Simulated assay, not measured.
Amino acid sequence: MSQNIPNDWDDFELFKSSEHSSGVALYESYKSLKNHFSHLPKKELVARGWISSENDIASLTDLFRDIHADQTGTLFRRSDSANLSLSSIWLSKVKSYAKAKIATGSISDFKGLSKDELKVLAQLSPDTNIIVELPNILAKKGIAMIYCRSLPGMKVDGAALKLSSGHPVIGISLRYSRLDYFWFTLIHELSHISLHLDILENPILDDLDTDAESEIEISANRLAKQTFVDRSVWRNCEPKYNKSIDAITKFSESIGIHRSIVAGMLRRESGNYASYSSIVNEYDVREIIFNGN
């Protein structure tokens, strides 16, 4: 191992006894951690209590573990971008919070998630207060749902993964606080669990501002849209021709979802993101969840 090892390497002594890791591999993981740390907004992490000071790399033990476990480099070491560093520490926190929840016994065993169950969840959307209860509702289905606010500049809306315990986890970043964006992110991540559970040992992180290109993302988008409204119904629904808010409201009530979701789908499809602003900005999801905190 290199002789020029920094003093704070000693804070990660617990990894040196691993039977499966050479000292060189551990040190390479540590260098990757240092690189990520250099890109992170230290003041923000201190304010959140994620680190104790702007020099406190030792509090990032969970991120160090994740970097070292990421042998393929598909997530934690594939580039030096600032967004990747933000995404990496955010995902590490999501996993840490999920493991803590599971350790309390509050998450049931996971037995699958059907398309019918997805539709039932989507039809909870008219009650805006249900957002606070969703983690408990999903816990009964064996899914750990974590609200973990986006870091400034981070381009991730949600994540889906599976822990070694077999429990699926979804992380919601609340990068945007619109109700339509929240519900589409939620159902998109749950669609990954329904469709792609067998590959979620490698986490999926989603930036829903970008167009889906991989078959995995296309299929999750397709299922999410179908969950909200059947394609045959959507194809000729009245709001496509009658642009009034009243038409959106009546159609939404007829299919059992919140009208902001229909408005959001129309905005996305038309590319006119100035339309229906009064509907999609009617509620502040972060305010609902964190009560202004």
Rank of each mutant, 00 (worst) to 15 (best):
A212E: 06
S32N: 13
W90N: 00
I102T: 04
I255K: 10
V120F: 10
D246T: 11
V169N: 04
V120L: 14
T249S: 15
K141H: 11
S88P: 00
A47L: 12
I216K: 05
L138G: 04
S108N: 15
D109Q: 13
K250D: 13
L200Q: 05
P135Y: 02
A224S: 15
H188D: 06
R77L: 02
N272M: 12
M265P: 05
S173V: 03
E44K: 14
K43I: 07
I131E: 03
M154I: 09
L75Y: 02
D10S: 14
G23Y: 12
P152T: 11
E201M: 12
G105P: 03
L190A: 09
Y97W: 08
V233L: 14
L205T: 01
G166Y: 10
N136V: 06
R267S: 07
E19H: 10
M154N: 09
V156H: 02
T210A: 14
I51P: 01
A160G: 11
G256T: 09
S32I: 07
F76D: 00
I193T: 06
N236G: 10
T227E: 04
S164C: 06
S21V: 13
D8V: 04
A47H: 11
S88V: 01
C237S: 11
K34D: 07
D207P: 06
I261G: 03
F110R: 01
A98C: 04
S254W: 09
N291D: 13
I248E: 04
G264E: 03
A82F: 05
F251I: 08
A82H: 07
E133N: 15
A82Y: 02
V262S: 03
H39M: 14
E253F: 08
I199L: 10
A103I: 02
Y176D: 13
